[in-house]
Design a binder for these strands. Structure first.
Lengths: 155, 155
DNA sequence: AAATGATATGTTATAACATATCATTTGGTT
DNA sequence: AACCAAATGATATGTTATAACATATCATTT
């Protein structure tokens, strides 16, 4: 069940941060939960609104941004630069480094799925770049399209 | 010479817009020129500053955005969503539709080069997407890395 | 228990990026 | 000249994000 799944992710995160000082506070847990239960990426403001609705308590924008930055450092969430919205990292393991997250974004229902593009395919992109005189870092990719559900429901 | 090259692009644009009503006004020409002479992508505010410096005349932000939107429609420029900056389209021909511009962005000197990724490679990305249940639209890609110049000058 | 230090959050202000709306001007057409 | 559409100006506002400084909270040491 979804609740348990979320709790497990939070537990994992807690373990991960059972190192010097870093705390997974109530606010951080709540915001992580908000990201996890949302079907779609949320803006910082939407997160703040959601926090308000869900917990009957308002949270300053500033704090939301700080927590999102914390999540980014800790690879708990990512920012989609094409939409200025935030998603939880889908790699709930200690091994994930998430240096170059890659997403499929549905232009209709706004869902964003984090995927892994194979080294082979990324290698192709790197080749293209090399030809043009660039050496690629790990680049976050945001690919736009339609998800199966939305393709099915097109008029 | 660069000046002539720019004039030619503007002439081409003018021809292209010799259709009902649409005008390539002085302001539009100047802003196109600013984009063309800049080595790096510019923000809307930087464009306004540049306009001021180059022509001793200030231009409202609003107008800059409007002109950028006009350029976008007309495929004369593109927006880089990862940096909120704007670049001239590098396809100076009437045939260009630029539905999915693709860029290499240098993380050091900020240059952005518009490239064409082959259908074969894009096809690979589409396959990855299909497996994950998405059908790709033409996606703008922004790949980060280092250009040859900057690789050479690394310490 | 009090002091200290580190981490987290609150508060306020402001920067940076962008759009809405309505008034006015401009330039081509009749 | 009169008209009309297109472009621009002017003003207000919305949205996204960071800076700067103060306070709270928690853990550790004294």
């Amino acid at each position: 069940m979804k609740e348990q799944w979320i709790e497990r992710i939070i537990e994992q995160a807690k373990d991960k941060y059972a190192r010097t000082g870093v705390r997974l506070t109530t606010k951080r847990k709540r915001i992580l939960k908000i990201l996890l239960v949302s079907d779609i990426p949320l803006s910082a403001y939407e997160i703040a609104d959601s926090y308000n609705n869900a917990f009957g308590e308002s949270i300053p924008e500033m704090t939301v941004y700080r927590i999102l930055n914390f999540f980014e450092q800790e690879h708990l969430s990512h920012k989609l630069s094409s939409t200025n919205k935030y998603v939880p990292c889908s790699h709930h393991s200690n091994s994930c480094t998430c240096e170059a997250p890659q997403f499929l974004i549905c232009g209709k229902c706004q869902t964003a799925e984090e995927i892994s593009i194979s080294k082979a395919v990324m290698g192709e992109l790197e080749k293209v770049a090399l030809k043009a005189g660039y050496s690629l870092d790990e680049s976050q990719l945001e690919l736009k399209g339609l998800c199966n559900k939305c393709i099915g429901s097109e008029e």
